[in-house]
Design a protein around this nucleic acid. Structure first.
Length: 613
RNA sequence: GGCCCCGUCGUCUAGCCUGGUCCAGGACACUACCCUUUCACGGUAGUGACAUGGGUUCGAAUCCCAUCGGGGUCACCA
């Protein structure tokens, strides 16, 4: 590649949230450009001239694109820490209240929204028609559909038959005139008859025989260019040097190459260049199917159908499609269609999941975010889906924990694999747990608070109701127990219920009632858990609220255990049952301290009553 | 179905280009044990793969071919 900077681009279609696979594509493009820039600067080059990462919004589908979605995708990228040099500007509030702007429009290449570039595409389309490399086509969708069905019935691949009145290389004035008069039409590219060889940096040379690609549409009837056309024009005009995208685009690449061979820049009269291509392996579900947003709809549909089929709980009304629609406050027809698989409405899927309390598979970055994954864990994990640094740690283990900055220094296309990767959420969770544990207690507390404030404000309110010390204690207790920020809520369930709503596990209560040799002092008869509970309760009640702290409680229980001649665990387990209803909680001193003196005594009394009745 | 891509533990992968050091290494998951105040965390150990069949070679996970298997794509969606 010549003088100019390496330019990569991520070009999402704003038709929903950012897909996790898209995030990986963006990450690789970003890392590639960053490395080029870093090395350029190390050589003393001008900043910004070594490598640039660009975002372009491919909003040429009028029906499906939306500004909200474009903004959401940009926010998801920013949240992940993937920032672009060129592209739409995104104004964001930092956690500290300041603002920052991403996307500087530093290069003068026009809008980064394709819908605003229609005039540019039209100029090139006119040019192609004038040199006989494109022609208007007037077939209706029905006609094409019929031809396709015929081809399928005859077990043949449908290829659009080039019209007899068009001669390759000759402008078809008759058709152009008809189009000018306003007759509805599309414009098709006249494919040449040469074989196409795509040189792919990951897959090697991919050859496509002549005649495999037909005359495809480059401008739709609504006047907007198709993806294939817009992408080729913009990549050239925006100076894109390296195209990195998912392997699903490999089959499209011959079209792009053919277009590049046919096109000449209108401003400089230079032929279009063919960028370097690198097609990355796909990210699949664990069952081998393609990871798709529709998986969420499928999961919600299944959950709803199961719930409808299931006999209702005693006293509850059976769930029907109609009652489901009603409790969701949704249009019954929409719900019925959804259940029948007629639509994959993701909003509805989310509502159904919330109502039925099921978790939908995380597919989009936003799903991971709201389920409490840390961006650094996601970045690390998706990077490994297709790339790895190929480095060993001093102890001989593979290096697989790294951050975006590391990728910016080390990323290279030749270490990108060819095989599709299955998305193993268990491993992601492990990475996330490691990322959480790498945080200090204070950092974790701040992140957890922010997470709860955004996604579970009621939980946060209940925790805060226990006082400011409680949150700090609980956050520290949650940190090693949480695989995700959301998962952390499970570890503090006991602090969320009202004192009088603690449900005592009958088995645990039974255990408290029976004498246990382990509860005995050496040489003495066995004691019951209830007895030890009463002893703890008495001692705790003597501890004033002002001294109700983790170390004080810990010392108190240690001393009591010593006096009674038992291990501290013999005290802790009955207290756990008393205060949480069952035998599982964080450290007992932390648990009691976070709950507060009043709650603890009240709960212990309730437990005592439940056990002695 | 046509065309194209891919094939190492259940999963992500190292090794493959530059055959021997690989009866294949790491991570996640799983199992056991240790630690322990329950649950976690942490520590130690273990189970577990070169898709199959032919070649080439003294020697193949590594090179070649075939078969089988998986995936992508065949839109006026991107």
């Amino acid at each position: 590649m010549p003088e100019g900077p390496v330019i990569t681009r991520f070009a999402p279609s704003p038709t929903g949230h950012l897909h996790i696979g898209g995030a990986r594509s963006a990450l690789f493009c970003w890392a590639f450009a960053r490395r080029a820039e870093l090395e350029h600067r190390a050589r003393g080059g001008t900043p910004g001239q070594g490598g640039r990462f660009m975002i372009r919004i491919e909003d040429t589908d009028q029906a499906r694109s939306s500004d909200e979605s474009a903004r959401g995708i940009l926010e998801d990228l920013a949240w992940l820490g993937i920032e672009w040099d060129d592209g739409p500007t995104l104004d964001l509030a930092n956690p500290d209240g300041t603002r920052r702007t991403i996307g500087s429009h530093a290069r003068d290449v026009g809008s980064y929204f394709q819908a605003r570039r229609v005039a540019v595409y039209n100029a090139y389309i006119d040019h192609l028609m004038s040199i006989g490399r494109a022609y208007p086509a007037f077939d209706t969708a029905e006609e094409l559909d019929k031809l396709r069905k015929q081809a399928t019935a005859a077990k043949q691949t449908f290829k659009y038959p080039r019209p007899a009145d068009f001669t390759f290389g000759q402008p078809c004035t008759a058709r152009i005139d008809r189009a000018k008069k306003g007759e509805p039409h599309v414009v098709r590219f006249a494919m040449d008859s040469a074989a196409v060889v795509v040189r792919d940096e990951i897959l090697g040379e991919v050859k496509i025989a002549p005649g495999e690609v037909d005359d495809f549409v480059i401008r739709k009837a609504d006047g907007f260019p198709t993806y294939h056309f817009a992408v080729v024009i913009d990549d050239e005009l925006m100076g894109v040097t390296h195209v990195m995208r998912a392997q699903e685009h490999l089959a499209n690449t011959p079209r792009h190459v053919a277009l590049q061979r046919a096109l000449t820049r209108l401003d400089t009269h230079q032929p279009f260049r063919t960028p370097s291509f690198a097609h990355m392996p796909l990210i699949m579900n664990m069952d081998g199917s393609k990871m798709s947003k529709r998986d969420k709809a499928k999961a919600a549909r299944k959950a709803a159908k199961d719930a409808i089929a299931k006999p209702p709980a005693p006293g509850a009304a059976p769930l029907t499609p109609a009652s489901l629609a009603q409790s969701l406050n949704q249009d019954p027809k929409l719900v019925a269609d959804f259940l029948a698989g007629e639509n994959d409405n993701l909003d509805l899927a989310g509502q159904i999941a919330a109502l039925l309390n099921v978790t939908l598979p995380e597919i989009e970055v936003y799903d991971f975010r709201r389920n409490g994954y840390l961006p650094e864990a996601i970045i690390n994990f998706i990077a490994l889906l297709g790339w790895n640094p190929g480095m060993k740690l001093p102890d001989g283990k593979d290096l697989e924990k790294f951050d975006a900055a590391f990728m910016a220094e080390r990323f290279s296309v030749d270490r990108v694999g060819k095989t599709p990767a299955k998305f193993d959420r268990a491993k992601l969770q492990s990475f996330n747990a490691d990322a959480i544990n790498a945080l200090t207690d204070a950092q974790f507390a701040a992140k957890w608070r922010a997470f709860l404030a955004e996604y579970e404000p009621h939980v946060l309110a209940r925790l805060d109701a226990r006082g400011s010390a409680a949150f700090t204690i609980l956050a520290a207790a949650v940190k090693p127990r949480a695989r995700t920020l959301r998962d952390g809520i499970n570890a503090v369930r006991f602090a969320l219920v009202a004192d009088d709503d603690v449900a005592f596990d009958p088995k645990a209560i039974d255990k408290l009632r029976s004498p246990d040799a382990k509860n005995a002092a050496p040489g003495a008869p066995p004691r019951t858990g209830v007895e030890l509970l009463a002893a703890s309760r008495e001692r705790l009640s003597a501890l004033p609220t002002a001294d109700w702290t983790v170390p004080a409680i810990h010392t108190l229980l240690e001393q009591l255990a010593q006096q009674l001649g038992v291990g501290i665990g013999q005290l802790a387990q009955p207290l756990r049952v008393g205060v949480t209803g069952a035998g599982v909680s964080p450290g007992i001193a932390e648990t009691l301290a976070a709950l507060g003196r009043e709650s603890v005594l009240r709960r212990l009394d309730r437990c005592h009553r439940a056990a002695v009745v």
